[in-house]
Design a binder for these strands. Structure first.
Lengths: 151, 151
DNA sequence: GCATATCCCTACTTTTTAGGTAGAGATAAT
DNA sequence: ATTATCTCTACCTAAAAAGTAGGGATATGC
């Protein structure tokens, strides 16, 4: 299970990315609208800013907006930011590789081999799908005025 | 990252499954050979027994052996036993579904939709690959006497 | 039938992480 | 000057992870 923190980050990011460009959302507004504890969300948004994903404006009429385009921000990148390495074993992480303690031989480790299969499959999805994709993908969405026209 | 407990369980299971049928391994022996804290391993083996995966014999010359054949025991089954649901979101778990708190609409939830893709991919692997597969798959293994004959 | 080696069971401890809360400072608009 | 925002740091609490501990049950072999 992913942490609440990561889930909140996704909710907030999706909300901010859905705004028209140049339009900023306040942390208090997002918190209220998505039932996220306000002070906790502030920390999360700050992390997203420090990671170069969001930009912020202070003072009255301040708020958060996307710094990078939503379709350059993958689910994997955000998840790593809040959960650390996604790999099921330290020896499978590319970005923060560590040897398993007491590992005798990586190439002969059955556990590593099997989890590599599973991790490859999920990583391929998480690192390719972006916040932008998620917002544009209407395949499961109910009929909107626009969909009806298209259909 | 998977827990140490689960990793120990896999190491022990692979060791027990690799034995000739009818041959039991003791918890102390496995613990020593694989550098696992003994009393901790005992709990783990007991869990595997209660789950119907291992059988045990007590007293002198006792030990643990497979109850079910190794190729009927998937990585997913063992992982669920020690880590709980594998789904990244409660609303994606089939075996222990729960609604996300504050969920407005599951079919319109972008987070759910994207994580479903990733989870499907990894679940397909974890629930299909078995302990038996892992032991028989020699594609990455170095040349053994048997391999040399086969090759 | 006693010593010993094993599994079995339960309770406890320690460390880390998750999930926040709290409060004050910096900055910008009005 | 006031107010609404972001920014920073410290703290708190509950739960989980990772073991430790100690004894009880049972089978074997002498």
């Amino acid at each position: 299970m992913i942490s609440n923190k990561a889930k909140y980050a996704f909710r907030a990011l999706l909300a901010i990315a859905a705004e028209p460009e140049g339009n900023a959302l306040t942390s208090a507004g997002i918190a209220r609208r998505h039932s996220i504890p306000h002070k906790f969300l502030e920390q999360i948004l700050l992390d997203l800013k420090k990671a170069g994903i969001l930009e912020s404006r202070r003072g009255k009429s301040g708020g958060y907006a996307m710094l990078r385009p939503a379709d350059t921000i993958s689910f994997g990148e955000v998840l790593r930011l809040f959960e650390g390495p996604l790999a099921p074993l330290p020896c499978l992480s590319r970005q923060s590789y560590r040897k398993c303690e007491d590992c005798v031989s990586e190439t002969n480790c059955e556990i590593r081999r099997e989890f590599a299969r599973s991790y490859d499959a999920s990583r391929r999805v998480l690192d390719s799908r972006t916040i932008g994709d998620a917002l544009n993908d209407t395949s499961y969405a109910p009929l909107t005025a626009e969909n009806r026209r298209a259909g």
